[in-house]
Design a protein around this nucleic acid. Structure first.
Lengths: 283, 283
DNA sequence: CGGATTTTTGAGAATACTCAAATGGAGTGG
DNA sequence: CCACTCCATTTGAGTATTCTCAAAAATCCG
């Protein structure tokens, strides 16, 4: 199905950008390695192996659970979610892959996909037939190491996720989710401070083990505290340092209690009125 | 350091069990593949590559975070925990590897371990130098596929963990933890119904994202309901089907409310006394 | 045996959830 | 272009699950 076309006369030679042929875009090995930020084998012949691009519209499925596995996908542009469907039919978001991320590794084990990938926006994906992937590792020794490294990185990333899910409060989860997203946008060359969310509150909540209401409330609270600004899906990170180290938000009830005490004192004429010292103590 | 010793005259030839040489136990490739439940290459020379065993005492560290990575470990016997230490020094349990499980994959990516492994009991571990591991993949093509498969399985396992952590109640987490353990004991040839926990309530709680008190209470509740019997670390699974599908326990407060209503009615002489119909309705 | 650790259990508090309603956009068709 | 619908989001009120703190009981280990 994915033949490796010989270079034609009508194909302009580009080594840094994908080119069009037979109605599709194709990338060479060096471009794929660049995308994955792994060193490309110096011995690689530019046009030896070409990888086909495929476009997916927002909302469309890239692979589904149980589907026979034979291809890995690399995100070239756009945003994706991967989900797991539990025994009760509930959708659980596992990751939000974006440019440079690889999809489908979970299918290697049983030769069938264990998860489902759905495009959140229009996407351009590069297809890497698993057979090609394996063969390349044998041809280019450096590549084999890189492949193990990519899979290892995925494992470490999931371990961090597990750690975060079981140890952090809702506020900390949301705060870190935002700073992580920011870092990934940075790495992609976009602003890490100001970006648009491509997923719903529902999907964020599923990813973080929270309800959509909790996500919404937490975003509002972070906004209130001036750590971020939110307007729908438009996010501005205003205090990344605070977001990264956040453990809990100052509890609203503590504020209320202080306020009650203060007003009681004011009523008894023991305190002339509000003062800034108390104001800061409440934050 | 890990030389590959030539077979000596004083070594009895065994292909199915490790043998002693130079004061250590060694296993050949076929034995290692068997342990990992992957097909051994038919072309493998029995004594071509030998893997050294190392013993760890309970409580001892197998590798630590940040340590340079050069070796994978396979559990031959005993029980291990892997942990991650967060920025505040809190310990987060990531997995409980046991016979046939592989450790250290997280170190491949950065060539330094991202997690720490500690023996819960006395352990016998097989050392697989990463270089040997990679070289074997190139020599035996079937092995390369198996290695990718093992890593893929690890990724799928962690995805299931993420899904469980963010979606299930405390009761369901504990129930599944027990049935999972049972299945793993079964695969190891032990009873999957009756076994001893090798970890503390604290460690179980860390693994499941719960406090030790919640774990203890949940075990007591499952015991109360007759789904399991617990006596310290001795577990008997009495109703695995129910444990696997458990979502929530019948809420204790609902029982109390019913009980209150009943006693109120009894007080008013509207109900003669307790009856079995109400008793079942409360469960 | 004694000290340390683990486990159990209780009471109260806090976080996050559920249910509900209102608001606000985005897209569609008249 | 506007009304209409649909979906996402916000916010409130009350509840429930899980956590925290505390104390006692049981077990382990030297």
């Amino acid at each position: 199905m994915l033949s490796q076309p010989k270079r034609n006369a009508d194909v302009v030679s580009h080594t840094d950008t994908p080119w069009r042929q037979q109605g599709s875009l194709w990338s060479n090995l060096r471009q794929v390695c660049e995308l994955l930020t792994i060193p490309a084998p110096v011995t690689a012949d530019e046009e030896d192996t070409l990888f086909q691009h495929v476009r997916y519209k927002a909302g469309h499925r890239i692979h589904r659970i149980g589907q026979a596995f034979d291809t890995l996908y690399i995100v070239n542009s756009g945003f994706v979610k991967t989900i797991h469907i539990d025994e009760f039919g509930n959708e659980q978001v596992l990751s939000f892959p974006m440019k440079g991320d690889i999809l489908g590794i979970d299918g290697i084990h049983k030769q069938h996909h264990a998860s489902e990938a759905i495009a959140l926006t229009d996407c351009d994906m590069i297809l890497v037939p698993y057979k090609t992937f394996a063969a390349l590792g044998r041809i280019h020794v450096e590549l084999e190491q890189a492949m193990f490294s990519v899979m290892s990185r995925e494992i470490v990333r999931e371990q961090m996720m597990i750690s975060m899910l079981s140890a952090l409060s809702a506020e900390a989860k949301v705060a870190r989710f935002l700073t992580n997203l920011g870092e990934r946008f940075s790495q992609m060359g976009y602003s890490g401070r100001s970006f648009n969310l491509r997923m719903t509150r529902q999907e964020i909540g599923s990813y973080l083990g929270l309800t959509l209401e909790t996500v919404s409330r937490t975003l509002s609270a972070l906004n209130e505290l001036g750590m971020i600004s939110v307007e729908q899906r438009e996010i501005n990170l205003l205090d990344t340092a605070a977001l990264k180290t956040l453990r809990r938000l100052p509890p609203a009830k503590a504020k209320i209690k202080v306020a009650e005490k203060v007003s009681a004192l004011v009523n008894k004429n023991l305190l002339p009125q509000w003062n800034s010292e108390l104001s800061t103590a409440m934050n």
